[in-house]
Nucleic acid binder design. Structure first.
Length: 566
RNA sequence: UGGCCCUUAGUUCAGUUGGAAGAACGCCUGUUUUUGGUACAGGAGGUCGCAGGUUCGAACCCUGCAGGGCCAGCCA
């Protein structure tokens, strides 16, 4: 089986159409170069996966290249830790930067040179106004801005001041370099945008080499151009920046064809947040264990939760890209996770809410203990090569509490007094009795088994309506199992500017302290995802043995019937 | 009394040159089944945002309107 993301055909979309059109017209001589440009100020989330699949996917489809490039122009928020986490997540998702890891900070010197060029051309100036004054004179959507009193300085004075900015002669915020465009422009981002600000802050890569740092608009397009990017994809909120992106590139002598920015709609998912800022707030709140908590919608979190990288890739290919900021139902993502896991996850038996089942006619050994018999059980009915395993069966078993009812309602066809069911790969058993405590809670179920039904089928051809999973009590191992529900109650936790932290589901995690598992589960490698038969897919934690996270449940017809009946 | 962008099924998206409204997921029904899973088959679900116009013919072209998104960080 290939681990490469090439296994899917990408449906066409407006971006691929655009590239086809570029290739037909020879815009870039059939060259396609993209980039994935995260800022290292947090972990990657599921929304980034869409961008990654787009950028790397498009490059792959058209024989082009794609690079990971960190947009590390704001040292106050960025760190090497985030760089490492992002590189790891990208690799886990199944992608590799063609030229290794690139950094906008590697171009600081080039950017500085280009900035002096702009000053020399009279297209940039040093502004002595403070942040407040600059803001006040920018105007707003309906009123034009006014020119800075420093706008018409001479080239020589600008050059001198800019060099002194770099040399560290001024304090933070005392001066900025601005592009000289048009303070009355209808597009706010064209009203003499800032190119450099002074920050005496240590950068995670360039250390203290610089005390002036380029702003996004002055770093991004130039980095694209410097690298030879042809197609620069970003999300819709950068639409207004495109005019400035083009303006800057128009003023410079570029080493390659001019890159073009194209925006696409970002991914939104119900009951999930896809905002690094809000994810950071969640981490800071202490409501989760960290960026890589299994409840987080970060790639690290989803990995711990057991989401296969392939499922995420196929989901991203399926939703495709458009120019709409939509919200996809999280169920669609989960469906891709189930589809993948159904094919690859080994089946195991685990009882989450144990109820004792005693087989009253089961043989005992010389000491009077129930005999233990090894049963051969199929590892994955969807995959013949997965083979079988031996699972101990005996006269005292754990079954799921909700698999038994003393007084079963109409469509319940699991175990009940007088009823016969199949214990998977074991025997048919018939319920003879149930013990209850003072509250009426069932404490023990008594059954008899039919020795003729070894392996799970009756020679006389009689049928049962239910097959149940089980774990032999004497040989069971225990584990902590974490059952997850939606982290956020409302489908759109950030709607209308709401704070998602106010929408946290208090019951998002239910911890089963001591689930009873078949012994084989103790051998499951860390990080592996298995199916607990009839329950769902569960991921062994990445670091802690015998902690399992519910990745996603199986579709549950019985739960649906119950829900329908209130 | 600004600019740019968006609007097709519950959701995400296709819909070629203007020529009979589609897929996936979700939901419902049935078949199969040693997982109430899976697989397979079928069904329901649409004022193509609204109103005009052009045309023999408009989801598609034009105009207007409505609704939504983004933009007034020395964030990206």
């Amino acid at each position: 089986m290939s681990e490469k993301p090439e296994e899917t055909e990408h449906p066409s979309d407006f971006i691929r159409e655009l590239i086809r059109s570029d290739n037909e017209q020879g815009t870039y001589g059939n060259r396609v170069q993209t980039r994935f440009p995260p800022e290292p100020n947090g972990y990657l989330h599921i929304g980034h996966a869409k961008s990654i699949c787009l950028n790397f996917g498009v490059a792959g489809d058209f024989g082009g290249t794609c690079n990971l490039r960190f947009d590390d122009t704001n040292p106050e928020k960025e760190s090497a830790d985030f760089v490492i986490a992002i590189e790891r997540d990208l690799q886990w998702l199944g992608f590799e930067s063609d030229r290794g890891t690139l950094y906008a900070s590697d171009y600081f010197e080039q950017l500085y040179t280009w900035a002096e060029d702009l000053i020399t051309k009279g297209l940039a100036y040093v502004d002595d106004q403070d942040a407040e004054a600059i803001s006040d004179t920018r105007g707003d959507f309906t009123t034009p801005g006014t020119n800075s009193p420093f706008r018409d300085r001479s080239v020589d004075e600008n050059l001198d001041l800019f060099r002194r900015m770099r040399a560290g002669e001024f304090g933070d915020g005392e001066r900025v370099l601005r592009a000289k465009i048009d303070m009355t422009h209808a597009n706010m981002s064209m009203r003499d945008p800032l190119m450099y600000r002074i920050r005496h802050v240590t950068h995670h890569r360039t250390g203290d080499d610089w005390c002036i740092y380029p702003n996004y608009d002055w770093a991004h397009g130039q980095s694209d151009a410097f690298e030879g990017v042809t197609h620069s994809f970003c999300t819709l909120e950068f639409e207004n920046n495109r005019e400035l992106y083009d303006w800057f590139l128009d003023q410079l002598e570029l080493p390659h064809d001019r890159p073009r920015q194209t925006e696409f709609g970002r991914l939104g998912l119900t009951h999930i947040i896809t905002s690094k800022r809000k994810l950071a707030a969640l981490v800071a709140s202490g409501k989760v264990e960290g960026w890589d908590d299994a409840q987080m919608s970060t790639l690290s979190g989803l990995r711990r939760r057991g989401y296969p990288a392939k499922a995420i890739r196929e989901f991203c290919d399926h939703i495709s890209v458009g120019r709409v900021n939509g919200t996809t139902e999280v169920e669609l993502l989960e469906s891709f996770v189930r589809t993948e896991l159904n094919k690859v996850a080994l089946r195991r038996m685990a009882v989450l809410d144990p109820l004792k089942l005693v087989i009253t006619n089961w043989p005992t050994d010389a000491n009077g203990n129930p005999v233990i018999e090894m049963r051969e059980v199929i590892n994955n009915p969807e995959d013949d090569t997965a083979g079988t395993r031996q699972v101990p069966f005996s006269g005292e078993l754990w079954i799921e509490r909700d698999d038994f009812m003393i007084d079963p309602p109409k469509k319940f066809f699991r175990l009940a007094p007088g009823r016969e069911v199949r214990l998977r790969s074991g025997y048919f058993v018939t319920c003879t009795d149930a013990l209850t405590d003072a509250d009426g809670t069932v404490t023990e179920v008594h059954v008899t088994y039919d020795p003729e039904t070894a392996g799970g089928s009756a020679p006389d051809g009689r049928k049962v309506k239910a097959t149940m999973h089980w774990v032999a009590a004497a040989t069971a191992v225990q584990a902590e199992v974490r059952l997850y529900d939606r982290l956020f109650v409302s489908p759109q936790p950030s709607a209308g500017g709401a704070d998602p932290l106010d929408d946290l589901n208090p019951d998002s995690m239910q911890v089963v302290a001591a689930a009873q598992l078949e012994p084989e589960l103790a051998e499951t490698p860390l990080g592996e995802v298995v199916q607990f038969e009839r329950i769902g897919y569960f991921a062994h934690d990445l670091d802690r043995a015998m902690i399992f996270h519910r990745t996603v449940g199986l579709r549950d017809e019985w739960a649906r019937i119950q829900k329908r009946n209130g």
